[in-house]
Amino acid sequence: MNRFHVHLNVADLAGSIRFYNELFGAEPVVRKPDYAKWMLEDPRINFAISNTGRTPGIDHLGLQVDSSEELVALGKRLEAAGGSLIPENAAICCYAQSDKTWTEDPQGTRWETFHSFGEATTYHGADAACATDGGSCTPDVQAMAPMPATTAIAASCCAPKSTCC
């Protein structure tokens, strides 16, 4: 089953955590010095905030799936929607390990589709070869070489896993 994902950049992490705890009636399931995440069932959402020096506001939107097969199916829907797809295999991001595919909608809003399969001890991978900007784990889509959609879909789930991106 898909779960909607929203990631906000915030200026005041502690104040934002207090606000969202009250709004959601729940504590974050992950809380770090620069990050917090709520996995809610009603509404079914993965809501994350971070204080990593980026401009406050919406960083990106996304859909989280429960399996590699669902990620492939979602990738086919992205392919039908058009645009460049950027795979990120075995990514370390937001204290998790995930396979991802990134794209942008026609307005330039970044969209992340992902399947998480493990925890991580850092916010983002430290490998300089990673394509992410490091501030929010979202890639600078314009600076990356996009792949044809069918290649990106295959690479995001079915290719041998690398240690980064």
Rank of each mutant, 00 (worst) to 15 (best):
D133E: 15
K161I: 02
D105C: 05
E88Q: 10
F117P: 03
V29R: 14
H7N: 14
P106I: 09
G75M: 04
T132F: 05
N2S: 14
G134C: 07
G134D: 07
A73R: 12
P146D: 00
F47P: 06
T138Q: 13
T109G: 05
A159Y: 09
N2W: 10
C130D: 09
L23N: 04
D99N: 15
S16A: 14
P33A: 11
T151D: 15
D12A: 05
S136Y: 03
R77Q: 15
D140W: 11
T55C: 06
D12H: 09
G25Y: 07
T163H: 09
D66A: 15
Q64V: 10
A126M: 11
C94F: 08
E41S: 13
R44H: 06
T163P: 02
A128D: 13
R54T: 14
E112H: 09
K32D: 08
G53K: 06
C130N: 12
C158M: 12
A80N: 08
F114L: 12
D42Y: 02
W111R: 03
G125R: 05
M144E: 09
I45F: 05
D42Q: 10
P43C: 03
R77A: 14
E22I: 08
A131C: 03
A48W: 08
T138I: 00
L85N: 02
I17M: 07
L8E: 04
P148A: 13
G125W: 03
G125C: 13
V6R: 08
E27P: 01
P33K: 06
P146W: 02
T113N: 09
C93K: 13
H115I: 01
G15F: 05
M1R: 10
A152L: 04
S67T: 15
E69K: 13
K161Y: 07
L8K: 00
L8Q: 05
L85S: 05
A26T: 10
G125K: 03
Y95K: 00
C165T: 04
E79S: 15
G135A: 13
M147C: 02
R18M: 09
A131P: 00
S68N: 11
A152G: 04
G125V: 07
S84W: 03
W111P: 02
C158Q: 14
A149C: 08
W38S: 10
A131S: 07
I49P: 03
P106E: 11
E88S: 14
Q107H: 02
Y123K: 06
D133P: 00
I92L: 13
Y20A: 01
A159Q: 01
E70V: 00
D66K: 12
T52V: 03
G82L: 07
R54V: 09
H5P: 03
A149S: 13
G53V: 04
H5S: 12
C165N: 13
P28M: 14
I153L: 10
D99E: 06
G57W: 04
P33Y: 09
C137Q: 00
